[in-house]
């Protein structure tokens, strides 16, 4: 791999791993100098860009931890949610409170009711008991679906944006910006012509369109490659830093040390978020 390509890839990967732009610039410059001095091929001296970027991110201890406790008002308060199908109780007495500027993760085994709980919070499914308070606008991203086969991406943006009261041009531009954060440039293809992962990117962008106060995301990363998966979490942290309340249903644990609230539903459907 030639120097320039490797260095460009390194720049990208450092950004994905949350390394700040100043430090990233230094790291890349230093690596470039080393490669010039040693004359070694980059892959031998440093390894693949993603691995080196991960090692760098590790060494600096990740992005600076925000001061915990600087949270905003309550955005989502679910109290004592109960839901059963026939004789099977899926959720019994589940509660969750999420403030502005917090990220909550809902974890649990398959079938533990994570998606059902999220849909109840969004108001898309009825609950047998309990109450949900929503303080602000809501964006929801299902695991699949939520798009129209025969419409193009910009038409989706216009349609959803109109609901939020956005003029068409602004909605399309906002959608394009959010899409590029996920490494995607929407073209003129209809949704049915997009690959599975790209269609999910559209789904995620639509959830965040119009900057809702509360984001409810149900494992939206189906079909994402590793880079896009990291981009997704990058967006989640950005949303948090901008004061949104984000709830993510996930069964992948490696990002859990950076979320503020964890709701574990695997213990028989009862849980109170820490």
């Amino acid at each position: 791999m030639r120097y320039e390509i490797w260095l460009a890839a390194l720049t990208d990967e450092l950004r994905r791993h949350g390394v700040g732009p100043d430090l990233a610039g230094h790291v890349v410059a230093e690596a470039a100098a080393h490669l010039r001095d040693s004359g070694e091929p980059p892959l031998r001296a440093f390894g693949p860009p993603s691995a080196y970027a991960a090692a760098v991110a590790d060494s600096i201890g990740g992005p600076a931890q925000r001061a915990r406790g600087v949270v905003g008002p309550v955005r989502l308060r679910a109290v004592d949610i109960t839901k059963g199908y026939g004789r099977r109780t899926v959720l019994s007495g589940v509660s969750l409170t999420v403030h502005a500027g917090q990220v909550a993760a809902i974890v649990g085994a398959n079938g533990s009711g994570k998606s059902t709980f999220l849909r109840i919070c969004a108001g898309l499914t009825g609950a047998d008991g309990g109450q949900v308070e929503l303080h602000g606008t809501v964006g929801y991203c299902p695991q699949a679906g939520g798009t129209a086969d025969f419409l193009r991406a910009d038409e989706h943006f216009a349609l959803v944006g109109a609901g939020r009261g956005m003029p068409r041009g602004a909605a399309v531009r906002a959608g394009g910006r959010q899409a590029s954060a996920l490494d995607w440039t929407p073209g003129g293809e209809q949704a049915r012509q997009l690959s599975g992962g790209t269609r999910q990117k559209l789904n995620l962008v639509l959830a965040g369109l119009g900057d809702p106060d509360i984001l409810l995301l149900d494992e939206p990363y189906q079909g994402f490659d590793r880079g896009t998966y990291l981009d997704f979490w990058h967006e989640v942290w950005q949303w948090r830093d901008r004061g949104r309340a984000v709830v993510v249903v996930t069964h992948l644990l490696n990002q859990l040390d950076r979320v503020d609230v964890v709701l574990d539903l695997s213990a028989g459907g009862a849980g109170v978020a820490a």
Partner: peptide, 15 residues
């Protein structure tokens, strides 16, 4: 000592 090993160590020392 490869660059990929050395520079993270230097970063940690700096940190």
């Amino acid at each position: 000592i490869q660059g990929g090993t050395l520079y993270p160590v230097l970063l940690r020392l700096q940190r």
